[in-house]
């Protein structure tokens, strides 16, 4: 007798090789745009607030900021989950964060958006 699972009949997307290439960290602060140290193999690429890039580059002085920043860190070398764990541990000593999202490439395509 064969067994089935609830998901056996679902549509499947063709698989692609998955590569961990960075992390988005959502930081909560009342002190304005956060500043970061170097964290091992992760380097800050941009910081956005409500989806608008606030670092680096031009920021309108009129831009309304809330106390929640999306901070994009790119890996500077091949990294593993262990590197992410260490990175988040270090970052958490200085910054309060609400969530961390790993960034993966699927084949040659980035599985994450850039900030406006």
């Amino acid at each position: 007798m064969s067994t089935t699972t609830a998901t056996s009949g679902r549509a499947r997307r063709p698989k692609k090789p998955i590569t961990l290439v960075g992390v988005d960290v959502y930081v909560i602060t009342e002190d304005g745009i956060p500043k970061f140290d170097e964290y091992g193999p992760f380097k800050i690429e941009f910081i956005s607030n409500r989806g608008t890039k606030v670092w680096p580059g031009y920021v309108s002085p009129d831009l309304m900021l809330v106390n929640w920043y999306r901070c994009r860190f790119n890996a500077t070398r091949p990294v593993t989950d262990k590197d992410v764990d260490a990175f988040v541990g270090e970052l958490g000593k200085k910054h309060q964060w609400s969530a961390v999202q790993k960034l993966w490439n699927y084949g040659d395509e980035a599985g994450f958006s850039k900030a406006y």
């Binding site: 989806g51 999202q101 960034l103 599985g111 994450f112 958006s113």
Partner: peptide, 12 residues
């Protein structure tokens, strides 16, 4: 949803 924060959180 125009904050442009989108992720492929798994391959599907």
């Amino acid at each position: 949803s125009y904050a442009a924060i989108e992720h492929m959180v798994s391959d599907e």
